[in-house]
Design a protein around this nucleic acid. Structure first.
Ligand SMILES: [Zn+2]
Ligand SMILES: [Zn+2]
Ligand SMILES: [Zn+2]
Ligand SMILES: [Zn+2]
Lengths: 156, 156
DNA sequence: GGTTTAATGTTATAATATTGCATTAACCGA
DNA sequence: TCGGTTAATGCAATATTATAACATTAAACC
């Protein structure tokens, strides 16, 4: 995404979407879960569980522990509100919960932004390859690492 | 791959390929590195570093340590002889070092076999999606989890 | 042979994730 | 509203995966 987009809008949209999706499915977006989701949406860069733990502890007087964070993450993953980027051991918000929910990402090694690919042909190609082998797909992850357009111009 | 293929052939081919590729590139396939590669090729199921550590320790009187295994794995990854399956924290042999070296896998959740997709359209779709965003690809991983043809027939 | 570089040994520790059980909060039917 | 049930959180310990730092040994090279 561009460097100077209105990111508050991303956050607001994501939180509204999350509230809607949870109420729709009878799932409870508790304060802890909402906090974690907000922290994940603080940027478009995948964030690790222990970073979240630090931030969560910082914003309340009580010190949190790993299970608190991991349980919230599990919930958010189940609801399709976030993705896990396995190659980074990190988590990032889902732009489009409910639609395809592809889990295909472009990850810039310079700015660390992870951009989810929506409505792409990759899913189709994967389906087709799987069908050829009579393979039934449960889940898929596509993690493409490289350099984004904005960082390509920079001198390094 | 089929359940009852001649797997000794897979192992022999992989080791021959590895020796050839290393000599070609002036890289040293030392005993430890060859042992690790052989252990990885013991099956088509991705194997974790600590499992390799156990096996390696078992086959010699001396007890190995994590750095020994991880250094061998780093070497084999550099030479393109194995792939890391990030979603499993595990490693699997590369069927076709040097050709495309796609890193696209079908992973069966029942039998745990990881089948590398060669000559597929997925790479093309990924290139195309990346190009549309002016994204320069360094590396890519595609991990498709589900159920393979052989396990689909089983009762569960 | 002596020098340089690569590989391995060894110890310790970092980083990521889970288990098990106690406690509290929410929900729900009487 | 009460009491019972389930869901969520608190908390301590530990499991799993991976790396850092430095010493030692082996290989390569002239
Ligand atoms: Zn944004
Ligand atoms: Zn970038
Ligand atoms: Zn085989
Ligand atoms: Zn299978």
């Amino acid at each position: 995404m561009s460097l100077n987009h209105n990111h508050q809008r991303c956050i607001d949209d994501a939180m509204a979407m999350a509230r809607h999706r949870c109420s729709e499915r009878g799932a409870r977006l508790t304060p802890i879960r909402a906090d974690i989701l907000k922290l994940i949406w603080a940027s478009h860069q995948p964030v690790g569980a222990y970073d979240l733990l630090e931030s969560l502890s910082a914003r309340s007087e009580r010190r949190s522990t790993p299970p608190t964070v991991y349980r919230a993450l599990d919930f958010l993953l189940e609801q399709g509100l976030i993705h896990r980027i396995a190659s980074l051991n990190a988590f990032v918000g889902c732009n489009d919960p409910g639609h395809g929910h592809s889990g295909h990402f472009l990850i810039c090694k310079d700015c660390n932004n992870a951009t989810e690919l929506l409505a792409d042909g990759i899913g189709t190609a994967i389906q087709s390859a799987a069908r050829q082998q009579d393979f039934t797909i449960d889940s898929q992850s596509v993690e493409i690492v490289g350099r984004c357009k904005h960082c390509a111009g920079q001198n390094d």
